[in-house]
Structure formats: C-alpha cells, structure tokens
Design a protein around this nucleic acid. Structure first.
Length: 118
RNA sequence: CGAGUUGACGAGACAAUCGCUGCUUCAUCGUUGUGCCUUCGGGUAGACAGAUGGAGGGGAGGAAAGUCCGGGCUCCAAUGAGCAGGGUGCCAGGUAACACCUGGGCGGCGUAAGCCGACGACAAGUGCAGCAGAGAGAAGACCGCCGAUGACCGCUUGCGGAACAGGUAAGGCUGAAAGGGUGCGGUAAGAGCGCACCGGAUUGCUGGUAACAGUAAUUGCAGGGUAAACUCCACCCGGAGCAAGACCAAAUAGGGUUUCAUAUGGCGUGGCUCGCGUUGAAACCGGGUAGGUUGCUUGAGCUAUAGAGCGAUUUAUAGCCUAGACGAAUGAUUGUCACUUUCUUUUUUUGAAAAGGAAAGAUACAAAACCCGGCUUAUGUGUCAACUCACUUA
C-alpha cells in the first residue's frame, strides 16, 4: 500500500523510543547527514529528528532542515522496511540548499533498501 | 526636481499537486467506554467520547529575537516596622505598572525641520588626580614689569644710574584645569583698588501647579573638579516561577487498616537437634513514578463612530473573535507574474537615461512555547503623509 501520510504514529515521541534506536543502531551516512536505524515490531516506519542547536544555530534553519527531512521521509516511506530512524545532522548543514539535502537523503534511502534485501 | 527630518503602513502575489495541526459540520460504524431499560441472560439508543471517510474554514513576527525592565496569573511566606541589599533620580501628567510614553524646563548639536542628555546634593565625613609646571587649593615670583619708599653710587640737591631691601598676578611659560570676564580710570608697576556693562551669590517682587524664567535692590565676588568615587537626601521593591500550579493515574516495588486462615505450622540454613532468619489469602485506603488531562488563550483584546484632552491617554456606544503546537504544526515541489543583481540589444546622446530580451536568486532580518506593556538589537527594500533647506519658474 502506497501512503504519503505523516501523522503522530509515524514519529518517535518519547525518550524511551529514542533510546531504543540509539542503543543498537545501524549507521548510514553522507557528508552532512547521519541516520541511525533499528528494525521495529510495528507495521510502520517511524522517524525521529535530532537536530542539535550546537550544529545549527538559528531556529529558522533548524526548522527548514527538519521540514526537508520530514518531506523526504514522507515521500519515500513506502519503499522502506519497517524501521525506526533517527536523523542527525553535522555542522554546516544550514549552508546547504533544499535540493542538496534531498539528494543526500535519497542516496541514504537507497542504501537502506539495498541492505534490507541482502 | 535635489538633499534631508519625522511618522504611519507593508514584509512577495496567484494557481496546481502532495502533506501537517486545531475548529465547525455531514455521513457511516458501533465488537469498546457511556446513557437508558432489565427477568442480570441481555436488549436498546446514538446525546457525549472513539474510529473511518467527505466538505468548509483558521494557522508565526514587526521585531515572534536578546531575556534588559514593568505588570497580570500561580504557589510559598506573611501583623506591622526597621536593618541589610537592590533600583530610580529636572518638573508635571498618563498608566495595572515601569527604567516606558506625552507635554514642559534647562544644557548641547544642527542653516532648519529636528535630534541627543543617569539632568538631585561636593552642604557633613572620607577619598582620587600620571606627566608637565614657579605654583594644583584660603596657590604661586621661573621669565617678565616696577623700584614710588628705604639703603647704595654720581653730581648741577632734586635729578640720573644701578637693581640691594622690597612691590607686583597686567603679560609669558606648563597643563584638561591657574581663584570671575571686557573696557575705562587709577598706579612706580599693578591689583574689584574704583566705576560701567556682562556673569555669579543673597533677599524680595512678578509669571508659572512645578521645574524654571523675568525683574529690582544689595553684595567686589563668597575658597576649583570628580558622586556610572564611597557617601548623603527623597521615593520604590517579600521570594520563586507555566518545568508555576491543579486533576486523573498504570506496571513493578513498597506502606497502612480490616477480615479470614492459622502457628508445637510452612519455607531457608543444616546430616540431625537447638538456634537464627522469613511468612498465607481477600477487600479497602492513602502517597506516588511513567503517561495523560488541565493551566491554554476572551484579553489592561481589536475595529469603527462620537465626546474630553495640546498630547500620552481616556469615556460611551456598536460590531468582531484573530495560532495554541509539546522530540514541538503553520510546509514541499512545479509554473506564471512582481522584485533585486548581472549581462546584452535598440533609440536619443557630453556624461547618462528610457524601452526590450536573457540568466541567476534556501528572495532582508529572523520563527510563537503562559499572556500582556515597554526597551534594546537585526533588517534588501517598497508605498503614503507632514515638515525643513537649497535651486528654478511665476
């Protein structure tokens, strides 16, 4: 079933859920973005964002990056296996344009899908 | 038309597709909660929760920022007063309050519109001031001026000389600052020594609510600066914050009460005895973690009209509801237009300007986190209004 929805069930909400991902992650990365992933027991993919104030200083830039990640996740989630994901960001990401962020994310989604098939 | 000042408004627009989050409404479901009925088996309802789907409508700012002031609200503590500590500081008004705003005064800047100012007191006590300079606080003879008077030398015996005693703050030098300023008189030279004007101080009068201003008389001038130095004076201030606070409340562990069961008991240690340790079931109660709900947006609110006031502001009436998220929504992509920058073409041309085309552009600063009133800082730029100066024309 192809869905483009993104509601509260598609998000990591509590510190416990975040800890579960941090404790035994599979790492995927690109030059500016790191993704931690763990298989989950639900029928959903769930997304969590960890955009540190230390890495991206302005609130406006943090919001922009979060929205780009969410949008990309929303459009690609039907291809992914059932996993929990935490996206982290490195310094300098606020200098990237929306298109560049998207390209990096799509690369990572492909990596995850390949890994899953094996 | 050019240069500028002040104030107000705006903060890209529209469309398509895919989404996020509240609200309203419609349809369907109803195995759950809930309501009603009950012969306690269940039946029934669709008001409210809930689920699914559809439709409509709302969804960041002028600074949301910095968290620098002031309040509301909440809890804690409270009878008042004082001390400590902190804050404010020309006057009057506005306000819930303020360090804010308005009007006024004074001082400074600007040709002007206008802008800027912690702008009480050195009276009491204590402190601070490098270098330079003769002297830095009831000052000071370094250069200079004088040498009338007294002493000295010369003689023409009342004049000259020299500069010893001494006089002198007008001039020079030093410094951020040298003990009122300018002019005339005066004098040996000078000096508020005398006078005129200006300034200051004291006292009175006039105007003003006041800050203050004006004016008259008196007084030769009253002994510097610094209080974002301690200090003094006047006034103000209890503490902590929405992670405040209120409510519901799992799982696991533990607490209390009651009832039942029962103790020469059971279990553990141990070969056994003694000894030591430990204790079953049910109901109820309170505390309370995770989590959830609330606080949470109707408010010192906004708009219009009328009245009061120079104004800040305020009064009355009418209308309106305008974000409430919580690992944190308000978006993404594409297209057209607008805007900015760059390049280029044509026309007129001294420079340059106008029109057209193309390319590029997270389109300035920056995003709510309980809510208001301010301040400060950031901000590509656009529109409008009032005013000032200069130039041209009449």
């Amino acid at each position: 079933m192809v869905t483009y929805e993104f509601n509260r069930e598609s998000r990591l909400l509590t510190p416990g859920q975040f800890q579960a991902v941090f404790s035994k992650p599979l790492r995927f990365g690109s030059s500016h973005i790191t993704i931690l992933a763990t298989p989950n027991s639900d029928n959903n993919n769930r997304l969590g964002l960890a955009i540190a104030k230390k890495r991206v200083k302005l609130a406006v830039q943090r919001n922009r990056i979060k929205r780009q990640i969410r949008e990309s996740f929303r459009l690609n989630q039907h291809n992914l296996p059932h996993i929990d994901i935490v996206v982290m960001v490195k310094s300098g990401t606020d200098k990237l344009e929306n298109k560049e962020i998207n390209q990096q994310l799509e690369k990572i989604w492909r990596k995850i899908i390949q890994r899953h098939k094996k």
